[in-house]
Simulated assay, not measured.
Amino acid sequence: MSEFNQDDNNLVVRSGSGCEISFQVLQDVYNTITGKTETIFKPYFDCYELRFSDLKNLHSALEQTLEQYNCVSSSCSITLRYSDGKSERFSGFSRFELQGLSRNVCIEEVELDYDFLIILPKTKEAKTYNVVISLRSTLGVMHGHNLLGASDAARDLFARFDRGTAKLIVHYVDLAVARNFEGTFEGWFASLPRKKFSIFRIRAPLFSRPISFLARSLSIVLVAYLMFRFHASAVVDLQSLFKIGILSAAAFTVVNAGTLYLGIATQAWLGRMIPYSFINLSSADEDAERSHTNVFLRRWGKVFLAALSSIIVGLITAYITKWLDI
């Protein structure tokens, strides 16, 4: 039987003999005996923009949270992963602040790894708490795809299934301490500015199939109409009707085959136009965003040309049948 109070530190567990044991002590004893810790894992998918000042605010917020505990020791390491596949690791936030912005390469991910050795009021032994915060620039990931020549399959898999922008992992002994770190991160994360996108980017993956289907359908309808206009007067008997039927089937096959690739390409182009998170720590990151904006505009241009090409294929096919004059 257990009793809950407003403060998690006051949670008590009543044993079978009627003795009350602090839940804080119980968790400490469990860790001492088994050596096991518990884990909080939370993914995030918000499209934010992160600057260096935001990282400093996060570091300060975690230090302030730590002040309420008897922290015997603490350490921090920061790992930067770049779009070119390379990475750098710094053994402290001050080192990162001095050296971390020296490489002129777009950043794909920033990972902060904290280790705290904390003695709680009702325990005598210091326990380790590990907080890992991963902040991911999905714009940097897409930029890396271009730099490293990623396959179409890899790009499509990322756009559909791998769009996480941040994650928080806390390995803990005492739940109340872990919840405090979690609350600190979520309060900071909620304060980050969110990226704003046009409806054309937000809805682009949803538009991919309808646009492709509409362009191909319009091309087929156009071919059917022109075939009727060009050959209706030529149908005088069953033999001529049969010839026109064969010619029409051939024309529709050519249109369908000719526009199939255009339809697949259109779906791929639009399917990859996803909203993104953005880590802006250097001029290389700003250059990557400008480049991505240009790619976005070019893709819409390609979609327009693909739709127009589908219609042109239908027109050319219909006029070829007229020129054959069967």
Rank of each mutant, 00 (worst) to 15 (best):
F93G: 01
F93D: 01
R95W: 03
F96D: 05
Q99A: 15
S102M: 08
R103F: 03
N104W: 08
N104Y: 09
C106R: 05
C106F: 08
I107W: 01
E108T: 03
E109P: 03
L112Q: 09
D115I: 15
D115A: 15
I118A: 06
I118Q: 09
I119H: 00
P121V: 00
P121S: 00
K122E: 14
E125I: 12
A126W: 01
A126K: 01
K127N: 08
T128E: 12
T128H: 11
T128S: 11
T128I: 07
V132T: 15
I133Q: 02
I133E: 01
S134A: 11
R136G: 03
S137R: 03
T138I: 13
L139K: 02
L139W: 04
G140A: 06
G140Q: 07
V141T: 11
H143I: 08
H143T: 10
G144W: 01
G144E: 01
H145A: 10
N146K: 13
L148P: 08
L148E: 11
G149H: 08
G149K: 06
A150L: 06
A153H: 00
A153N: 00
A154V: 02
A154H: 01
D156S: 06
A159C: 09
F161K: 09
F161Y: 12
D162W: 08
R163F: 03
T165E: 10
A166I: 09
L168W: 05
I169Q: 10
V170A: 01
V170M: 04
H171S: 12
H171I: 04
Y172C: 06
V173C: 13
V173D: 05
D174I: 03
D174N: 15
D174C: 12
N180L: 15
N180Y: 09
N180W: 06
F181E: 01
E182Y: 14
T184D: 04
T184S: 12
T184K: 02
G187H: 10
G187I: 08
G187M: 11
G187C: 11
W188H: 00
F189T: 02
F189V: 03
F189I: 04
F189Q: 05
F189G: 00
A190M: 14
A190L: 14
S191N: 11
L192T: 00
P193K: 06
R194W: 06
F197C: 06
F197W: 12
S198T: 13
I199K: 06
I202H: 05
A204M: 09
P205H: 05
P205F: 04
P205R: 03
I211M: 12
I211C: 06
F213A: 10
L214Y: 10
A215Q: 09
A215F: 09
S217L: 15
S219N: 07
V221C: 14
L222C: 08
L222E: 07
V223E: 03
A224Q: 11
L226F: 13
F228R: 12
H231R: 07
A234T: 11
A234R: 14
V235K: 05
D237A: 04
